[in-house]
Amino acid sequence: MITGRAVDALTARFPGVQSDEFRGQARVVVHPDSLHDVLAFLRDEHQFQLLIDITCVDYLHYRDATDRYGLVYLLATLEQGARVTVRTWLNDPDPVIATVTDLWSGADWLEREVWDMFGIVFVGHPDLRRILLPDQFTSHPLRKDYPLQGRGERHNFTAIRRGEA
């Protein structure tokens, strides 16, 4: 109910917002430029105070996909158990989006992980550097054009023999 009201208000307020529902989960697709405003609107005026997750999907090999990256923001309310999924599309030369760390400080590490894994740049993020992989790593491994076994990074070390101490 809360979700329905919020989605209606959202489509009235921001032109170009598409909404649909799948298995009882409300989803909206917004333009990347208005993403920050949409999330702020949902948080401040429609009780979606909790950011559950930020993630990304690389649609490189997905059938009928028109855009490369789909950024996914999952929001929830504190009490009534309502949820909404906000998605936006980004494309390759410069996958750039505004950060939401000013809305939720917990978004800090989530955005760093998306940068680490997909190479999406979050403009305005206070400390955007790799989080899970070593700093020397050069690729973004969850992109679909990166092979599962990697490109040999995992064995780029010197072996230690007995007697070397």
């Binding site: 020397q136 490109r151 040999g152 780029n156 010197t158 072996a159 023999r161 007995r162």
Partner: peptide, 28 residues
Amino acid sequence: EFDMASRQQPKRALVELPVLGQSPTFVR
């Protein structure tokens, strides 16, 4: 006993090539 050849060498072939813009570091 630690000087035995089998204890000295890593046990399997190192097949994967290194990257990251460094020279190969597998030269023993």
